[in-house]
């Protein structure tokens, strides 16, 4: 027992030892994928630390629940990786401060006027398929619904996954009051509903499913990292739901200058040119010609569908009930 406890204490020590240095620490809350070796975290950390004389520390996990639990006492200085569909609650918490940045030069497909959250990249929700197996991919949501029921699609659960929620809103924005009919047509094609994006995408690459709910930028990974051209996003005429990743500054941060510097760094060219191949999405402020080649030629939806955060918050619950009801038929 004694040795076990000292073991545990030792473990705790190894985690604290890293912060012993005297540099100021900027704590950035982020979703787990952010800090992984293959996520955007490491290069952001290296890039920012090179110019800030500080220690950037990513704290990963369930960002929103954690912020809500911590409330005013949060240690966070900056929160990265939120998106437009959950920012209503983030804003309502009163924990965030205005960013004070000039966001006029953004390359988003929509105007951005939010004074609290700054977009750092974006993509569109889309169904990805293997173009060697599906020759004539649907070109509209209607066409997708009309596909034979033995076309199997994996989606994510809107109750546990942010991309699953985006699909819910996408269907709502395309079909409005007839969303439940759309679900009734889609459901027979749905192979399974996974907890997160990873499990679903894994099933697709394993060949379990013919299509998977992901992002229009997903093929870029296969093109750039694997030189595999067989994965494509089906582009729909009705438009695609816009998915914007955001960063925000915590109001009572004990490192306001560092936090501001980080917010500015997010829109710098260094950050922006790196994010596409680490988070596999479009940078929010980078001219198209500066994108990696694999991104420049990606087919892009002609129309971005998007709800304001108030709309998203108001629609979420009824849309979820609608989906549950349709799924239980």
């Amino acid at each position: 027992m004694k040795t076990a406890l000292s073991f545990v204490a030792g473990l705790a020590l190894t985690t604290t030892a890293a912060f012993a240095a005297d540099k100021p620490v900027l704590q950035v809350y982020a979703p787990d994928y952010f800090a992984s070796e293959w996520g955007p975290g490491p290069s952001i950390e290296a890039g920012f630390e090179a110019q800030c004389a500080c220690d950037l520390e990513f704290v990963t996990g369930d960002v929103m629940p954690r912020l809500m639990l911590e409330g005013e006492r949060t240690e966070a200085d900056v929160v990265i990786g939120l998106n437009t569909d959950v920012t209503a609650r983030a804003r309502a918490s009163g924990l965030f401060a205005p960013h004070g940045l000039d966001v006029s030069g953004l390359t988003l497909p929509v105007d951005w006027t939010d004074d609290t959250f700054v977009p750092f990249d974006y993509s569109y929700t889309a169904f990805i398929y293997d173009n060697t197996k599906i020759a004539h991919a649907p070109t509209s949501f209607d066409a997708l619904l009309a596909m034979p029921d033995d076309t199997k699609i994996v989606i994510q659960d809107p109750r546990s996954s942010i991309s699953g929620l985006a699909l819910l809103l996408w269907v709502k924005s395309v079909y409005g009051d007839k969303a439940d009919e759309a679900w009734t047509k889609l459901n027979p094609k749905i192979l399974t509903v996974t907890k997160g994006w990873s499990e679903a995408y894994g099933m697709f690459t394993d060949g379990e499913a013919d299509m998977v709910l992901s992002y229009v930028t997903s093929p870029a990974y296969h093109i750039i990292a694997e030189e595999d051209l067989t994965k494509s996003a089906a582009i729909f005429d009705e438009g695609h739901y816009l998915f914007v990743d955001l960063v925000g500054k915590i109001a009572n941060t004990d490192q306001p200058e560092l936090a501001d510097a980080f917010m500015a760094y997010v829109l710098s060219e260094e950050f922006q040119s790196g994010i596409s191949t680490t988070n596999w999405s479009f940078p929010s402020k980078l001219a198209t010609e500066k994108l990696p080649e694999g991104f420049q030629n990606l087919p892009v939806p002609a129309k971005a569908l998007v709800f304001s955060e108030e709309e998203a918050e108001a629609i979420r619950k009824p849309a979820l009930d609608e989906w549950l009801a349709a799924a239980s038929k």
Binding site: A35, S36, E37
Partner: peptide, 18 residues
Amino acid sequence: DGDNATLPLQLFRLMAAY
């Protein structure tokens, strides 16, 4: 935190990174 991932978490991270 970002630095102390366990193996199952690392497995998910690999999947999340395609």
